[in-house]
Amino acid sequence: MQVSVIPASHPWPQMSRGAMEESWHRILDFVFADAMDHALQSLTIYWPRTELDIEGIALRSAFLPSTHSGATGALWIGNTLSDTLSGFSRIYWLHQKQAPRGFITTLTSVKEYAIWTHTSRWWGLGVRLADLIHATSLRDRCMSRSQAHFVATHASSAQFYLHIYNVQEVSHVQPLAASPR
């Protein structure tokens, strides 16, 4: 699988530290695992020029066998989809809207991941409180629960959402206007 990164210009939060960095690593893992599972010939990552760990992309690209399936995928990072995604057979959309609307109703084979769920964030607050009162064992208990709830594969409130679409039957992807959360 050939991996390429194309800089984009839209805004996106930094994901370089702590739980944000962990979110980014998990997202890349899900995307690469799925892309390999579906034998994509290429994966294009639209990278919004923010502080994201590009080395993580390079490392994940290290052990990928080449395929000639013709199937192509794109990872789009942003709250509004771009029509530049037309023609890709598998789309990975990382966004911050809990219920995106629009063209997704026409697509099939959807997988969803909620990343850094709000449940996890609540337990993360417990970690901070435990730090303040130097309660080390309480901190570890809160941390374990925060980790256990970090990702959900069912509908769950979260900081990030990764939707995976199989668009083989769709000839054109409509741009999706931003919708209120």
Binding site: A33, M36, D37, L64, V151, A152, T153, H154
Partner: peptide
Amino acid sequence: SAPWAKGEILWG
């Protein structure tokens, strides 16, 4: 022999 797992992930 594969660098990436297949299927649903073990949580959620």
